[in-house]
Design a protein around this nucleic acid. Structure first.
Lengths: 134, 134
DNA sequence: CCGTATCCGATAGGATACTG
DNA sequence: CAGTATCCTATCGGATACGG
C-alpha cells in the first residue's frame, strides 16, 4: 500500500463507489442468499402466519430450517414473533416495516426471473450441447 | 392428491400465483445466490474486463471460484467470453444484453441494503444482548 | 403446536500446484 | 495470462427424535 499519486485520485473515488456497492450487495446476499429466507418472506407478505402454516406454504422446507430461518429474520428485525401461551401453544410470525420494505426489490428480481427464464434455459442448452473442445 | 372440493378453488388460484412467485425466486437465487456472482456482474457493469482485472476488482475471490463463476454466467448467457489467441493469451468477459438487464434489479437490492444496514445492525445487537431465557 | 438437539451426507469454496 | 485438477475444510441443510 504505497502512497498514491495524484493522477489516480479520480479512479480511486470511482473504486470507492464500486466497493460501497459491493459491500452493500455482499451484506444483502448474506441476509437473503440462503435457501429459504426469501420464500419465508414471501409467505409472510400475505399477513401474519403461524409456524405450521408457513411450513406448509413454503414447499420443501424442513421443520428445522424453518425455525432457523425465522430466528435469523427475527434477529435482524425483519420479522416479529408473538407467542400466545395457550395450550397447545400458538406462535405467529409477522413482517415488520423493515421486512415489508424488502418485498418490492425482491419482486423486481422475481419478475426478472420470470421474464428471462426462457432465454436462460435456451442459452444453457446451447452451451451444454456444444462440442467438448472445438 | 385427492380430488379438490369446490370451496377451495379461489384459494387454489391464489396459491398458484404464490407458487409461481416462489419458483421464479428460487430460480433467481439459484442463479445469483452464491458468494461471487453478483460481485462479478457488478465488476463487469463497467464494461468488458480481463480475467485478472476482475480477479483484482472482486475483493477476496479465488482464482478457482472466479473461473467457475464466469463459466456459470457464460453458460446461462449472461456473459460472453472472448479469447484473443495472443501470447500471452488475453481473455475478455463482457455482459450480454441479458446480463446487463440484471443490473437494475440488483441495484435496487443493494440500495435497500445500504439504506437499512443501520436498522438491521441495531436490531441484531438488541436481539443478541437480550437475556438468555426471559 | 412449537422448539431444540443430534447425527450425517452433500456441496461450496479456499489453497496449491501444474499445463498451454 | 488463463484454465484445470487435487485436496481439504467448513458450512448448509435434511431426517429424526425428544422436550415443554
Amino acid at each position: 500500500m504505497a502512497s498514491r499519486v495524484p493522477s489516480e485520485v479520480t479512479t480511486l473515488v470511482h473504486d470507492e463507489e464500486i466497493h460501497a456497492e459491493c459491500r452493500a450487495m455482499a451484506q444483502v446476499l448474506d441476509r437473503i442468499g440462503d435457501k429459504w429466507t426469501v420464500m419465508v418472506v414471501g409467505a409472510l407478505s400475505d399477513g401474519p402466519q403461524r409456524f405450521n402454516t408457513i411450513l406448509r406454504t413454503v414447499n420443501g422446507v424442513s421443520h428445522r430450517m424453518l425455525t432457523l430461518t425465522l430466528r435469523g429474520l427475527e434477529r435482524d428485525g425483519l420479522v416479529t414473533r408473538t407467542v400466545y401461551p395457550t395450550i397447545p401453544p400458538k406462535v405467529e410470525y409477522e413482517l415488520t416495516e423493515l421486512g415489508s420494505s424488502l418485498i418490492a426489490p425482491l419482486r423486481a428480481l422475481a419478475a426478472w426471473g420470470r421474464k428471462n427464464r426462457p432465454a436462460i434455459e435456451e442459452a444453457r442448452l446451447r452451451f451444454d450441447e456444444r462440442p467438448e473442445t472445438v
